[in-house]
Design a protein around this nucleic acid. Structure first.
Lengths: 137, 137
DNA sequence: TACAATCCCTCTAGTAACTATAGAGTCAAG
DNA sequence: CTTGACTCTATAGTTACTAGAGGGATTGTA
């Protein structure tokens, strides 16, 4: 059973262009071609695309996915590496969360500056954004 | 007192290329030029660049900063708009945090799948990434 | 004065992961 | 036989920079 690109895209919940893109950057092997040059995908292609999409839904960079796809062939020899890769990604996500938390605090503080129109001559938010000392010197 | 681009970059803690970039995309007005065509910045330029950098440190998109720079001229007429803009950004950050939280949960669950080498025929992490049902159909 | 180390200039291309467009061919239904 | 949906390639655009080539300007030292 072979599928055309539109079918594949629908089944993996991604855009047709994205499927072609993955092929272009070498994440997805070249599919067969019909007489009229349409791409034709097998179940294996489909499975690999699902793997990629799942990794992407976990926000892994394509480079990591590329590595995983290779390591996947002999999972047991590479168990440690696979874990390292996942751990690294978890750390990345932790860092992002921490810095977003800081960001949120700063934004709420900034937002709290506004005492409404008429309360002073200048907008407190604008003043704060202009006058802070983080980027002096 | 006029400053050359390197000095400006150092004082605002950003790269020389970034300063030129802000000029190119119209966030920073064109500076004066020396006889030898070097960019020369005034204190006002410096202040505006600090404003931009502070907004960026809050992760605001350049487009929002562009709007703020305009609204800033008559802060009081635009108090409501300024608040809206900041609120929108806070919501964006909240959403990012929520989705990162989900992501972290999924990654930790995935990581927990690994029972160490030798425990089964296939790597559980790889199996989970392949076999999940999120991207079926 | 000569020279080297910095600085600065413009222009172009590269980054991540797609997304969108143009212009053309293919296929199935009515 | 024509309409609409699908597909193809190739190219450019997105965000916010960053890096590099190839050249001139300035500054400090010998």
């Amino acid at each position: 059973m072979l599928y055309r690109i539109g079918e594949v895209a629908k089944r993996t919940d991604c855009k047709v262009e994205t499927v072609r893109y993955y092929e272009q950057v070498g994440l997805l092997p070249q599919p067969y071609r019909s007489d009229s040059n349409y791409r034709l995908y097998s179940e294996e292609h489909l499975a690999q695309l699902r793997f990629i999409r799942h990794c992407r839904s976990l926000d892994m960079p394509l480079e990591d996915i590329r590595n995983l796809l290779t390591l996947r062939e002999q999972p047991h020899e590479h168990c440690a590496e696979i874990n390292t890769l996942v751990d690294k990604h978890i750390r990345r996500v932790n860092e992002q969360m921490a810095s977003l938390g800081q960001l949120r605090k700063s934004l709420l503080a900034l937002r709290g500056q506004c005492a409404g129109p008429g309360s002073s001559d200048t907008c407190e938010i604008v003043r704060e954004l202009s006058a802070c000392e983080c980027h002096q010197e």
